[in-house]
Design a protein around this nucleic acid. Structure first.
Lengths: 150, 150
DNA sequence: CGCCAACTTGACGTTTACGTAAACGTAAAC
DNA sequence: GTTTACGTTTACGTAAACGTCAAGTTGGCG
């Protein structure tokens, strides 16, 4: 491995902000714990569009953020198709009133969906906290140290 | 269709409580908005085990609850395998100290996972609320009624 | 009795989200 | 110069979660 910190960022003062950072596909893969294949697949599906230098893909800070967003969406149980829709929501043309109203409508719909999930999640958490409490109490009553490993 | 409002709860006091209710597979499917095929699939995967009367499946109130739980898990983005694991957590043997400690450990792990999802969800909701606010403000500034359809 | 509606068990098809392998280019390292 | 590391495309494979027939059974109804 030999460190190989690929800081492509020049030590210059004017530019090398975090926002100017460029990532290779392997870097992104490592950082997010996915494979390069996955990232290319997301590109095939139209979720990311990295710059190209010849054939090689170059990912900007924006792509980095976008990928993080995608993976968060996945953790929340959205399909890639849904995530693409949501991403596109951001980048929709916002000049026309009709467009804006549609964006508002979609946003509200999505928020409602998220709030439904929030309620599901609350219920789920409450149940497992209940289990935790009960079991901890039972162990306590038995005089057992809940943390010990034997 | 003929209405068929499923308030089967008799006004009787003694026996046929809601907990004694028995459901057919089609009833469950209708109520939860899934197909009978799905329910049978869950059974194949070991997520539900309805009684049988001959070949026909009979679902108890417990099965009903269980199915609701499964679907909530799905909405939260858990796989059927994960959901099965979680369901089994409840029904684990709770006699031994070692078993109890394991249950406690697993519960805590799962709660941590749920809390991570909660943070994801919070972040997601915050972003979309932001969009909503911005867009609503923009429409307001333009003197457009956000609700009108033209 | 015939018939329909609702149930059953296979078995194969489909979509999603990637994994895996082949075959190749490029560029630094030994 | 060739190995090593990383990149590329193309293409087929696969696991999960069902959908979609096909073919048979069962219970009630006119």
């Amino acid at each position: 491995m030999s460190a190989a910190a690929p800081s492509v960022v020049p030590a210059n003062s004017s530019a090398p902000r975090d926002t100017a950072r460029i990532y290779s596909i392997a870097e992104l893969a490592r950082e997010f714990g996915i494979t390069a294949r996955t990232i290319r697949f997301y590109e095939d599906e139209g979720l990311i569009k990295p710059r190209r230098q010849g054939l090689t893909r170059l990912y900007s800070a924006g792509d980095h953020t976008r990928l993080g967003w995608i993976l968060r969406g996945k953790r929340l149980g959205f399909s890639l198709a849904e995530i693409k829709e949501l991403l596109d929501l951001y980048h929709v043309d916002r000049t026309g009133n009709q467009q804006l109203r549609e964006l508002l409508r979609r946003s509200r719909l999505h928020i409602a969906e998220l709030e439904r999930r929030m309620r599901d999640l609350d219920a789920h958490i409450a149940e497992f906290r209940e289990v935790e409490t009960q079991v901890a109490a039972e162990l306590e009553a038995r005089g057992v140290d809940p943390e010990s490993d034997d």
